[in-house]
Design a binder for these strands. Structure first.
Lengths: 116, 116
DNA sequence: GACATATATAGTGGAAACACTATATTGGTG
DNA sequence: CACCAATATAGTGTTTCCACTATATATGTC
């Protein structure tokens, strides 16, 4: 048997986008751009409870955003693929555009202003 | 009064990503990259029912992905901001990388193969 | 105003996401 | 094996998403 599911770019991309579509997960993933980190560090950096942190990490692993590697009692998570890295690069350049004032958050979300 | 909500880049970006995290919505938005289209055309192009098409469009309008313009009995939808356009450009270059073989879908979703 | 066309909205049921509390598992060390 | 630290999972209630059917609204034309 060994059935292989065929999947279009839109399915691939939308799954990734959806999995990144949560502010804390986006923070985590941006943090991991600099390199792998264990759960404790991620939790502390982002400021979430332990179970929530673990849930988000597992969720992203299930959705092929992250992979993990065990080292003794610690679990290190890291970005799973070049597509993810590429997407994050893009997000970053969007962020830069926003920060430089080329774009305005108000263009995107009226009645809001940027903080940080 | 006139309270202004402050919102971080992560909130802005994650909302956009989440709203794009659906294969049909991604198809719609890619279709609209070429320019505005009315609901009927979008429906026919993507192959969805009329209410579903309208729902997705309204959803994306609520999430500041799209804007609309009425012309007689027709409603034309179009991309709402440069951030969206920039993100789509990025998705497109990711797609190109996938197609050119620099990246593999298998890297992202094991047990799958690309179609189209 | 009657009617047709284009589009939106309401209602509904099921699935998934989310945040939270409590508990379990895994690996290391004495 | 007992115990500790790190992490995962189960259970729960709430909210949001999603697809679908049926109905409503808006605009243009006669």
């Amino acid at each position: 048997m060994n059935e292989v599911k065929h999947i279009s770019f839109f399915e691939v991309a939308s799954k990734v986008l959806k999995a990144l579509g949560h502010p804390e997960r986006l923070r985590i993933v941006e943090y991991l751009q600099a390199g792998e980190q264990n759960v404790g560090n991620i939790q502390q950096e982002i400021g979430l409870s332990q179970p929530i942190t673990s849930q988000h990490l597992r969720y992203m692993q299930r959705h092929n955003i992250l992979t993990s590697r065990r080292e003794g009692t610690r679990l290190y998570y890291f970005l799973a693929s070049d597509l993810i890295r590429k997407l994050l690069d893009c997000m970053h350049s969007c962020k830069v555009s926003l920060d430089s004032g080329d774009m305005q958050v108000g263009d995107i979300f009226p009645e809001t202003k940027r903080s940080i």
